[in-house]
């Protein structure tokens, strides 16, 4: 990889200031997307701002009806957290199936969400649960956050600080993992709260999206049968070496049915 200037700030203000004064800076969290991209010369930032020295970005806590996870918390910490497992177990399960053990020891929830990879798992949980994303400047609603492939509502230099997940009555995540990378070919996150149902799908399209037809049918009758005959438009789905657009459209419903079945098992 090309050379760069390395910075290790100890506060968000300091990090933002360094970003503002740099030519083309990148924040570094777990580094499991950025560093491989830099090796391949897909990214060549002049300045790397390592967020690892900002301890306020780490940690998991429960605040009344929300589970709050610091952006720098790694996947393994989320997967093995007793608090996550008791408050929103679907998030712990989702985290435990990201990549492999070594990746989970480094990759972070904030990095995954801010990167908005079309096949990442966390965006499905953020959108499915209708989380709130707290940055150093403002609070962004999940519905406004994911814009397109690798594109979010975060502005230049804005830092994702923590994610506030509203606690659902029930939720589940089901994905078909790519057998080599464990990225989601299609992943479906479903959450129900006070009778209303949200369905978010990752892996299928350039960015995570909600599926209104699945949501309305499940809000009417929460059962596998209710979505049995739903067909999703394959026109906007990704079509690549891993799966055709038609296959992905079909997988969306299959994974949704599995997630519903999981939720019905939870008493």
């Amino acid at each position: 990889m090309y050379d760069f200037n390395y910075h290790r700030p100890t506060s968000l203000d300091q990090a933002f200031e360094i970003f503002s004064n740099s030519e083309d800076a990148s924040y570094l969290a777990g580094g499991h997307t950025l560093l491989p991209s830099m090796k391949q010369r897909l990214a060549a930032p002049t300045d790397i701002i390592d967020l690892g020295g900002i301890s306020s970005l780490e940690g998991i806590k429960s605040e009344s009806d929300e589970l709050v996870i610091g952006a720098l918390t790694n996947h393994d910490e989320v997967a093995t957290s007793a608090l996550v497992s008791s408050e929103i177990p679907s998030i712990a399960k989702l985290a435990s199936n990201i990549g492999d053990a070594q990746v989970r020891n480094r990759g972070t929830i904030g990095g995954s969400i801010a990167n908005s990879d079309p096949a990442a798992d966390y965006p499905a949980a953020v959108l499915g649960l209708g989380a709130r994303l707290v940055t150093n400047k403002r609070v962004i609603k999940a519905d406004d956050f994911f814009v397109d492939m690798f594109e979010t509502a975060l502005e230049e230099g804005e830092i994702l600080q923590e994610i506030k997940f509203p606690k659902p009555d029930k939720s589940a995540y089901q994905k078909l993992p790519n057998p080599a990378s464990r990225y989601a070919v299609v992943g479906v996150f479903i959450a129900s709260r006070n009778g209303s149902v949200r369905v978010a799908i990752t892996g299928a399209a350039p960015s995570v999206f909600r599926a209104p037809e699945l949501e309305s049918r499940l809000s009417e009758s929460f059962s596998v049968e209710a979505i049995e005959n739903v067909t999703l438009e394959s026109e906007l789905m990704n079509d690549d070496m891993h799966a055709s657009a038609a296959y992905r459209a079909s997988l969306c419903v299959v994974m949704a049915k599995r997630a519903v079945a999981d939720m019905l098992k939870i008493s």
Binding site: L35, P36, D50, A101, Q102, V103, N105, R106
Partner: peptide, 24 residues
């Protein structure tokens, strides 16, 4: 960061040392 041949322990946990900067 796929094959794991470079795995070492960083503060007690297994990591792929090809995907960590020494300065980190």
């Amino acid at each position: 960061s796929q094959c794991g041949a470079c795995t070492v322990h960083l503060n007690g946990r297994a990591v792929k040392s090809c995907t960590v900067l020494a300065v980190q």
